[in-house]
Simulated scan of single mutants.
Amino acid sequence: MKNIVIIGCGQGIGFASAKLLSENNTIIGISRTQNNEVENLNIEFHPMDIISGNLDKITFPDVIDGLVYAPGSINLKPFNRLSVDDFMNDFEINVLGAVKMIQKLLPNLKKSETASVVLFSSVAAKLGMPFHASISASKSAVEGLTKSMAAEFSTQKIRVNAIAPSLTDTNLASPLLSTPEKREASGKRHPLQRVGRADEIAKMVAFLLSDNSTWITGQVIGIDGGMSNIKL
């Protein structure tokens, strides 16, 4: 049984990952919001905004085997309507929050024999998409951070990988999927003709944290219905 910390476990992909992993692991979850189902799962839940919260208030296990940083943002605007604050906010949520968590838990991760860190990028970091400037910039930084840390931590046997989803059916994406017409249009943008599900992404999270992936590090894995690599 592994000790796994999941940031952003209150909803969406973070919650789906916590739900799946809680069956066979000890989960410490941190999130601003809490899904009602969390109470029924084997999760030690801490309500906290990871950016402004005091992590010293949480007693973490001495050994941490996995860290998942799942908070995200969808801030889709034309470039000329994006403010500097928009860019800073997305960078803070997607990048600096991850940096804060990894720095806090690095001593605990070093004590594990099979430590694994999973971050989240986006298909928009690889594929140029209109109205995604702020998200693309911050998620591209996540990919650079992933590869740099994977190299630096490799001698300590800490693996670092990122998952880059496309549009996934979560609360965060609900404005883009609010009608059958929007859902159909969004699905048709993908070669597999549908949007993703949170449980599909969670299965990759579980794989990257498991002993089945111990020779995988520094990778950005696209789970995007083929969008980033296939053109029909």
Rank of each mutant, 00 (worst) to 15 (best):
Q103H: 13
Q103G: 10
Q103Y: 06
K104R: 15
L105D: 12
L106M: 13
L106V: 09
L106P: 01
L106F: 04
L106I: 12
P107K: 04
P107E: 03
P107G: 00
P107R: 05
N108E: 01
N108H: 14
N108G: 01
K110F: 00
K110Y: 12
K111T: 01
K111Y: 06
S112F: 02
S112A: 03
S112I: 04
S112L: 06
T114P: 00
A115V: 01
A115G: 06
S116K: 07
V117Y: 01
V117K: 00
V118Y: 13
L119T: 05
L119M: 12
F120I: 05
F120D: 12
S121P: 14
V123A: 14
V123I: 14
V123N: 10
A125L: 09
A125N: 12
G128D: 03
G128E: 08
M129P: 00
M129I: 14
M129D: 09
P130N: 08
F131D: 15
F131I: 14
F131K: 15
H132P: 00
H132C: 00
A133L: 08
A133M: 10
S134R: 06
I135H: 14
S136V: 13
A137V: 03
S138C: 08
K139I: 03
K139E: 06
S140A: 15
S140M: 04
S140T: 13
A141W: 11
V142T: 06
E143N: 12
E143Y: 07
E143C: 13
G144D: 10
G144Y: 09
G144W: 12
G144L: 02
L145M: 14
T146Y: 07
T146F: 01
T146G: 06
T146C: 11
K147N: 02
K147Y: 02
S148D: 00
S148M: 01
M149A: 07
M149Q: 07
M149I: 04
A151Q: 15
A151T: 11
E152T: 05
E152Y: 08
F153D: 10
S154M: 13
S154L: 10
T155S: 15
T155M: 15
T155G: 15
T155D: 15
Q156W: 10
Q156A: 11
Q156C: 11
K157T: 03
I158R: 03
I158T: 00
R159H: 04
V160H: 08
V160F: 10
N161T: 03
I163P: 08
I163F: 09
A164W: 03
P165T: 13
S166I: 06
S166K: 01
S166A: 15
S166Q: 09
S166V: 02
L167E: 02
